[in-house]
Write a protein that binds this DNA or RNA. Sequence first.
DNA 1: AGGCTATAGTTCTAAAATAGAACTGTCAAA
DNA 2: TTTGACAGTTCTATTTTAGAACTATAGCCT
Lengths: 156, 156
Amino acid sequence: MKWDTLDEEPCSLSRTVAVVGDRWTLLILRECFLRVRRFEAFQSSLQITRHLLSERLKKLVRFGILRRVPYSEAPKRYEYILTQKGLDLYPIIMAMVHWGDTHMGDERGRPLLHEHKNCGKLFDPVMVCSECGEPLHPKQVHVHVGPGRPKAIAAG
Amino acid sequence: MKWDTLDEEPCSLSRTVAVVGDRWTLLILRECFLRVRRFEAFQSSLQITRHLLSERLKKLVRFGILRRVPYSEAPKRYEYILTQKGLDLYPIIMAMVHWGDTHMGDERGRPLLHEHKNCGKLFDPVMVCSECGEPLHPKQVHVHVGPGRPKAIAAG
DNA sequence: AGGCTATAGTTCTAAAATAGAACTGTCAAA
DNA sequence: TTTGACAGTTCTATTTTAGAACTATAGCCT
């Protein structure tokens, strides 16, 4: 497969995988949501090699997930801040955390608990239908070919 | 990083990344949700090398995401079916599809449309709080250290 | 001035993962 | 007896990642 053009495939999942579908990117984004912003902080908390971190941050900036914002003029230093596009990845991260909590847990319990400030309670994320508000289950969803999919590959 | 023990890290995101955090696994799972079950079908629709497909299917079976079920006795042939643990990955896939629809689209429109059989409408997936039902936003969530996280690494 | 530290990278080699193609084995149908 | 379908395995070449060392700017301390 040509990974360099995966973000142009007529499949929204492929396009998302082009951005977050590697070993490190999701872990870097987790740190972003935990308010980590600086190169050294990412590096020491993830134990990622400096080379790869540099590459991944560049890629995330290129895709518009992070902004590289100067926080010091001399010497020039930058920190990495989630854009709106990046903040919108939150449901993906939370869905993954929830699945890990549910299916990959051990006897010690959850590593992190999440409190919803609006209602003050510890919660789990639930995915619902935008139209009727009911929780979504795969067998209740029917997939239709949309306008963005070439006819030749209508299936699959 | 030791990828071979990532599924034992005290972080639910890491544990999920250990399962789905590579180039191919999520694309294979997309096919599973589109009712693809057999080796040749995965291979031809994804253009994945047979070697990698074999490896990934083994890994997904090992993690209990897929079951390898015989569908022919002579010759012995198997197909791969999502377990409940696998079906529970649906919110992750749908969150990724929705993000791709929203942020990686082109002028042609969406590749696929999703209909909720319960209400009969085309929908988007929305992530809400299990307790109050309101849509979740990252800035409204406060993270607490849970029982499964060793004290030494309480932050990060 | 000279040396130490902090921060944010870049560069290099070795190891691991992936791509691409060919090969194996079982059985049915022609 | 040959062909084709299916589900893999094996092999070499290329690409990616790991791990460590190195570069560069500037503040602070003596």
